[in-house]
């Protein structure tokens, strides 16, 4: 695996497609700091999603085993709570690490481009 990383440094295999989508990234990031999870309505307003969209993305996350959805009651009102599972937390931590790696590579590339540009634009 390390050899593969060396040979294909820009393959970015660690970027899990389940997380690598704007709405799902918002959902998982909202849940990341909440060990007790969030209610469906809080999640909806935090992520700016419609009921249908949120349901669809939660289903993808639940199917991957990253999110657990629990239906219960808050007093007498029915409530749906969503939480990151232990597996989801570990996978999201790995995803963030991979994403950070991508950005650091981009930063390095931007840095070397700036050096090249200033070299090309230097006075003759």
């Amino acid at each position: 695996m390390p050899d593969m990383d060396r040979n294909t440094p820009f393959a970015f295999d660690g970027l899990d497609r389940v997380f690598h989508e704007r709405a799902r990234l918002g959902i998982v990031t909202s849940l990341a700091g909440q060990p007790e999870g969030l209610s469906f309505s809080s999640l909806k307003s935090l992520c700016g999603l419609t009921d249908g969209n949120l349901n669809r993305h939660l289903a993808v996350l639940e199917e991957a085993g990253h999110v657990e959805i629990e239906k219960g009651y808050d007093g007498k009102r029915p409530q749906t709570r969503c939480r990151l599972t232990g597996r989801g937390r570990a996978a999201f931590a790995a995803y963030l690490e991979a994403l950070e790696g991508v950005l650091q590579k981009a930063n390095q590339a931007a840095g070397s481009e700036t050096v090249m540009r200033s070299w090309k634009e230097r006075p003759a």
Partner: peptide, 24 residues
């Protein structure tokens, strides 16, 4: 601070939140 640096800082922040709320 470039956009990329800001994004890296945000990722560090999310990771810290994840760490605080994950069982140690």
């Amino acid at each position: 601070m470039s956009d990329v640096d800001r994004a890296i800082a945000q990722i560090a922040d999310i990771r810290a939140q994840l760490a605080v709320s994950t069982r140690f």
